[in-house]
Amino acid sequence: MRLDNLLKRNKDAIVKKWLSLAIDAYPADTSKFIKSQKDPFANPVGNTFSNLGPLFDELLNEMDYKSITSYLYPIIRVRAVQPILSSSQSIGFILSLKKVIRESFKKEFSDNDILKELLVFELKIDELALIAFDVYMKCREQVYEIKANEERNRTFRAFERAGLLAETSADGPSL
């Protein structure tokens, strides 16, 4: 498991580059702000990216689904309501980890054994991306649910106000 050791040893540098790519999905002025403002209340979006480190740890370990989703939700919940990012940009940051790793260890990958390990590791990243897709879709579904509920409640109330609703007993209307 030479690749694992390599990744563990260089975790900080890798996560830093990964973070940078993830934030660069935003326009330049925004990404500059997200990277520089450290106050979590002034910069709630930037604050979510602290989860990239634990996510990277999951890739190095057992890939626990529950833990992974708990780290992904805060990041993706934000991106799911930011139409400035396309859907693919919203979860594309997962795949940019491949780019970071490939660029970081170009020399090492001339060794076929490490390259084989990389192929396995990249499958894990793919799996992570698929989990991210699930999370993204759940967030989007929630947005539509909230929209639909608001509309439904308003219509319901309008009918109620107009006296168009009649209460029926639990066992149905009397016939």
Binding site: P27, D29, T30, F33, Q37, A42, N43, V45, V81, P83
Partner: peptide
């Protein structure tokens, strides 16, 4: 004022500064 707007912070759109 640039980074004080909730819409800039939340939407990530610089035209909301």
């Amino acid at each position: 004022c640039a980074d004080k707007c909730h819409f800039f912070i939340g939407t990530g759109d610089p035209k909301n500064m």
